[in-house]
Design a protein around this nucleic acid. Structure first.
Lengths: 338, 338
DNA sequence: CGCCCTAGGTTTTACGTATAACGTCGAGTT
DNA sequence: AACTCGACGTTATACGTAAAACCTAGGGCG
């Protein structure tokens, strides 16, 4: 209270408690067993509370040479999925005294501003989605501990990876549609260069290639409902026999497919089966409810954070992909007669 | 490169360029006009680039006593709305060399962990949504510059406020439905104690109270599609004449109302008109497309950040609510015959 | 010629914390 | 009685940066 309204420092606390600044640091840092008497420790804690003392993070970070802060790089935050990843990562981080700073890679074209400059924080490590490719290359330069999300394990040299078992999800969706009797497919693919989407296409080609008599058409769309409407409408009204089932790279594309079908006078699922991937809130809001592959975004974020903590502590990160599960709802049914 | 892999400091740059550490600081801080020769400055910049020098943020923050980092407190990040607010705030922040750290107030019950401890960052200021009420009270204790989003101007003592003109939005929705001929309303309200929702109820009561022959029933629901289905179904199948129009506190509640209507065999908009509020991607994904009040989340975030910057610089924040606009789509129509 | 001014730097200091290194004093040991 | 040793602290230092205060040499000027 003496001069101005500047925040109290550990020295102020020391003076109030009648001890040295070092003693305050020891007590508040919980390193005083056998170094400070219980009564003195008590006095220090009271003084700290009375003054409303909070340690200066900048000073602590400087002293310790670490910040307990990590950067989470995501492609954009406009959808629940990465919001969930952030939530999961933050939860685990908080349990270990870490904070998470977000860097949403700007969606538009144009060079991304420096992720580190704009994060405006000193960092101990980075978790990055492979979808934010431009930011990731910038990150590689800095020799920071790095965990990649949904990235090709073969290409993530040095960095640890945490992946959802997307391939299995796609396999489940394909299996489900095949068993219903579908043979003519449309793959509505996301128009984004990322391993997580390449895997979908590969797996689909692999599984359907094994079944004689199947055909698969591919269309590309930006990841948005509006974009998907146009792409799906074009693909479904193209020449040749119409596909009876559409496998979408994510739920937003599936929602767009619903609208395209409505415009073309097709009913879901009677005339057209549709599957999605993500299981956003959207999936149960639309009619009929969407058959989709459920991804546990929060678990994804948790595992990402755990992996980074392991790297920071020199341990080996937990390995193994995160399982996913097809949730069958009303958007899939046996095909009508050709 | 000398010892270990520790990051180069300004002193390393100084040595490489053959100058003092102070000169490096002056050059890189762009404060050297008339203090250092152009040729020397050039040498310093080259050395910094060659070594891959990045200033230590912790040290800078300690020295300057500020961090150019602000905290954004939101109720949760699961929906696009606050993702948009974050995006807008971040954009403006980046233009001014600021970073934004997010604190998503835990949704569940239970006391929120200390927002400041878990943010793990030294802060210059805070922007907080009034919906994260528990976190906000914690923040009030710290004498940090504060901007409140969608908060009662009468009660935000000291803090600057930035509000959407929600009252006007509700008025537009009511006006639209009245002009279509509706007289029996259901207000599906969010079960969250926040000024932004109180305002909706007040405005609705005020406007409909002026029109003789109108009636309005109120139901409360948690903010989620699933929760809204139950609340809307109960309210719509209650005793007395059925409302012909439902005004929902947000788009998710509207989506739930669609599902409730389907279960009750009611068609939207023929048997039931529905309006939302937010204009999420969801609004155009459902069938029929939702008539809703469009809120510009990114602009909201931008204005919030601008207000905080004004406070930090001792200026007066821009005043005036952010206008909103009713977007009429397919979910509203004249009521059928009683 | 003596003086000041300016360009072009350098030396020094402070920010607040954590911790290593260093007392000091009384009780117990030999 | 000299010595050790543990309990209870204190003093001193470093982290990397920004910037105030200081230095020095040469040129212009009265």
């Amino acid at each position: 209270m003496a001069r101005g309204s500047t925040r109290p420092t550990s020295r102020d606390v020391a003076q109030a408690a009648g001890v040295s600044q070092a003693a305050v640091s020891l007590v508040l840092g919980d390193k005083w067993r056998g170094r400070v008497s219980e009564t003195t420790a008590q006095r220090v804690r009271e003084a700290a509370r009375d003054l409303g003392y909070r340690p200066n993070l900048a000073a602590r970070n400087l002293r310790l040479g670490r910040t307990r802060t990590v950067l989470l790089v995501v492609p954009a935050l406009t959808t629940e999925f990465f919001a969930g990843v952030y939530t999961g990562a933050t939860r685990v981080a908080a349990e270990h005294g870490f904070g998470v700073v977000l860097y949403p890679s700007p969606e538009g074209i144009g060079p991304a501003p420096d992720p580190f400059a704009s994060a405006q924080a000193a960092l101990d490590g980075v978790i990055a989605s492979s979808m934010a490719s431009d930011a990731v290359t910038a990150i590689r330069g800095e020799a920071l501990p790095l965990v990649m999300l949904d990235s090709d394990p073969a290409e993530s040299l040095g960095a640890a990876t945490v992946n959802l078992d997307i391939a299995d999800g796609v396999r489940q969706a394909a299996e489900h549609l095949l068993s219903l009797g579908h043979r003519r497919f449309l793959h509505l693919a996301a128009d984004v260069p990322s391993w997580t989407f390449e895997v979908r296409a590969q797996e689909l080609a692999a599984r359907l290639g094994e079944v004689p008599g199947t055909s698969v058409r591919t269309a590309r769309s930006p990841i948005s409902i509006e974009g998907a409407v146009a792409a799906a409408e074009a693909a479904l009204s193209g020449p040749g026999p119409r596909p009876t089932a559409v496998i979408c790279d994510d739920d937003q594309l599936a929602a767009g497919t619903y609208k395209a079908a409505r415009r073309l006078g097709l009913r879901v699922p009677d005339d057209l089966s549709v599957t999605g991937l993500d299981d956003l809130a959207l999936a149960t809001a639309i009619d009929p409810e969407l058959t989709t592959v459920r991804l546990d975004a929060e678990l994804f974020g948790e595992r990402g954070m755990r992996a980074l903590l392991a790297v920071l502590e020199g341990r080996e990160p937990e390995s193994g992909d995160i399982p996913v599960r097809l949730v069958v709802r009303g958007s899939t049914a046996p095909p009508g007669l050709p």
